[in-house]
Amino acid sequence: MHLSPDEIIFWQHGFLKLNATIVFTWGLMLLLVIGSKLVTRKLSIGLERSRWQNLLEIVVTGIEKQIEEVGLSQPAKYLAFLGTLFLFIATASLCTIIPGYEPPTGSLSTTLAFALCVLVAVPFFGIEEQGVGSYLSSYVKPTFIMLPFNIISEISRTLALAVRLFGNMMSGAMIIGILLTITPLIFPIFMTILGLLTGMVQAYIFSILAAVYIAAAIRVRKPGTESEQTI
């Protein structure tokens, strides 16, 4: 049993390697992109539209609405980043029902990569919104003493993001693997269903937390709205 799909290596040449994480990520990418392309190939702007278009519209507008509810007044600006996070993680969890599939999110490298992306995205959007100086000054508020704590907070929450998703996905796969050896008939199915639910919840938590971090970064200068998220 592999703890992480990173350990399944298909091809390696020196530093370069092609493991299951990357391969399944490409597979998911192809699935998402081709699916999107197929559905959006013939979009209707009338009242009559296809079921798939309807589904995608519900998904996109749902994500947009969630982003807006978090506090981001221009959801379209963050839709691509946050929406892709949610859709990738959700699809990765959903595909666990396919036999032989290893979710890329079960790899700490993947979750860490996503967390690093969030770590970079937060100051990126914050600086874009309020400028470099204003954003950086938020780290020394209310006093200069808070600077190390703010930096630690940034790093710790990024790690928390990565480890939370990795732990949940990996544990789900591990539990199913263990249960298959103990009670191989019925119980793993329930655990798989539970794993689907956990995967969806984790996708939601990951993207919502990313949205909250970004929202905190761009709203920090507004009086009365400053808040530190230390989840």
Binding site: L3, L16, I22, T25, V33, S107, S109, T110, A113
Partner: peptide, 18 residues
């Protein structure tokens, strides 16, 4: 548990996917 090449690849993959 962390393979930095994979991390880099996944960051790139994610950005491409975005």
């Amino acid at each position: 548990l962390i393979d930095w090449f994979t991390v880099a690849a996944q960051v790139l993959n994610f950005l491409i996917l975005v």
